[in-house]
Amino acid sequence: MATKSYMQEFTKGIIKENPVLCLVLGTCPTLAVTTSASNAIGMGVAATAVLMCSNAVISMLRKVIPDKVRIPAYITIIAGFVTIVQMIVKAFAPTINDSLGIFLPLIVVNCIILGRAEMYASKNPVFPSILDGLGMGVGFTAALLCMGIIRELLGSGTVFGVQLIPVQILIFILPPGGFFVFGMLIAIANKLNSKAGKKVVDSPCQGCPMSKTCKSFACEKENCENSDKEVAPDVS
């Protein structure tokens, strides 16, 4: 029983609750760093490391951190781990640091990490939290890798730098191609989900950790009682 549920903690992030394709979190790095498959892996691994460490520490401190300052406390802890990962990458894999550029420190505002801290790690014991972080991280990496392979193959004709097809459709590695490929992947995920009779995402807000804050005001302001779609979101 126990092993089975641990297994579930790990696998749910990969397929059922994939943070990118099902919850639509972390869209900024998903679009920005997927110009090549190797960049996608670098970003995915860095984010996974941060996610596991921050989940572990937040879960450890979940009874100590006062509720009032919990978000600033989470952000501080996450920022600390992001900086540590950044320094390690700079020291041991400088080429990855150069190609990820600003998106490495920006892991700090990646909503997957704050989202998991708020929704999972703050309520669960340490070990499942680490597994949850690992699963979500692997799911994030897998989605990024998928985007990266498609964009690199179509855009430069290569995968991991190995020439596979002779044509290059440049637009795929430019920003418009990023939006397009991401849109198509979500369409496929939606199609599969609706076949399985599951809920389909139609806004980036559903999985957003700040959505509660938004919902209250957005509904007052926009009179959108019935529409979950127009919930102002944010966090990325």
Partner: peptide, 30 residues
């Protein structure tokens, strides 16, 4: 809340300082 936030900041900064001390020479070398 203030004191607990302060303690967290202190710990994180200390951890960063240690990592920085370990990695800074390597980064400069690179």
């Amino acid at each position: 809340p203030t004191i607990s936030l302060f303690i967290i900041c202190l710990f994180i900064t200390a951890a960063l300082a240690v990592t920085n001390a370990v990695t800074s020479t390597k980064i400069a070398e690179n």
